[in-house]
Design a protein around this nucleic acid. Sequence first.
DNA 1: CTTGATTTGTGCGTATGTATG
DNA 2: GCATACATACGCACAAATCAA
Lengths: 234, 234
Amino acid sequence: MNKYHQIYSDIVADIDNQRFVQDDKIPSESELMLSYEASRGTVRKAVDMLQERGYVQKIHGKGVFVLKPGNIEFQLSGIVSFQEMNERMGRKVESQVVELAEVAADAALSKAMRLAEGAPLVKIKRVRNIDGENVILDVNHFVAALVSGLSREVAAGSIYRYIEQQLGLTISYSQRIIEAQPCSDDDRRYLDLNGMDHVIVVKNLTHLYDGRLFEYTESRHRLDKFYFTDIARR
Amino acid sequence: MNKYHQIYSDIVADIDNQRFVQDDKIPSESELMLSYEASRGTVRKAVDMLQERGYVQKIHGKGVFVLKPGNIEFQLSGIVSFQEMNERMGRKVESQVVELAEVAADAALSKAMRLAEGAPLVKIKRVRNIDGENVILDVNHFVAALVSGLSREVAAGSIYRYIEQQLGLTISYSQRIIEAQPCSDDDRRYLDLNGMDHVIVVKNLTHLYDGRLFEYTESRHRLDKFYFTDIARR
DNA sequence: CTTGATTTGTGCGTATGTATG
DNA sequence: GCATACATACGCACAAATCAA
């Protein structure tokens, strides 16, 4: 682990464990320089990361103040998979793979993914059950050339973990689009909709470190189970 | 304008105006150092900002590559007001102020805003009309002690502009929550719902530079007119 | 009102490491 | 091996905001 990353994650841990609580001032740059035997630039990089990710607010001439109340579920910005998120929140979650097939990119997909029409994809459809109700339908499309060996066993667990740890690919960033859509036939077939006629769709275009797109996913959420939060800065 | 900010905004302009297009490599750090007579740290800070905001992707040993296709409506992360956003997209937009009153914080508001119950607030309710339809209902609650002189004339324009330019306050960050809710009576009264029974609610807790909360806003969108996009990083 | 101490902001320079081609 | 390009880390100087003496 890098030095700045060490400082960063130590302070994150201090906030999560309530050693620093909301409105506390964290140690000044010079104090951190001493305690970590680091240069000012290194310390500043760590604190800048904390601010970007919504943990703290720096105020010129005063200090650096903690924003979040301790630990909490707060899903700040970042790519977090369904599996990772719900593990953190301690919910009873099950995934059921209802489809896994090799398909060719149709017109809509090839446009969205900027791929040649007919390019081979692996399509996975999963139903997410939270506390006894089917509330999310995930439809993934992976670029077959990049992601090999996707089985039902892998799909039942965390696909991201498989991709990063087994295939050794580095996931870097994702463009995310959130919108509402009328329910599709699939929604009605797989989800417990309780009469609701729309779903919230989170589209994800996920890219590797070198910029190659490797996945297009639609995550279709029942209206009353959707929740998204982040921190925006001017 | 700072030096790093100058470099940053020059490159943003180059991307928006398609002088750099998707997958182009921008000048290397050493080239930017020469052309701006800047140190490496300054150049790197500018490029880091570009990456954080989703304009580029840095790849170790190769260069820095442009992600976005030129200009476009892409609503990247950041606090952008309704007014600012639609001005960019060239839409025909009208705002109607349907309520403006001094109120006291009730239990729900005082909890959400972490204020004393009964604290004085300025409540503004506005209907947003886009291309002839009422599709957004904005309900703002400003802390009266911080935001004075809010009139109907100000509310009809950009309140943010008034706050920053007239009152001289610096808006810094905002916690944003997105979720769906069943329609309220107000939604039915003010919006053209076309039979839809839910709205998407964007809650904003906006803070000043010194960390003081000055606004709680609910922006209630008709399902089919809601759209949100950003870039998430690992 | 002024001064000084503290703290963050901006900018410079340098050295060394690591990934790519 | 070598050149190029980004990554990490160190150091220094001065500016600007805040606060207390």
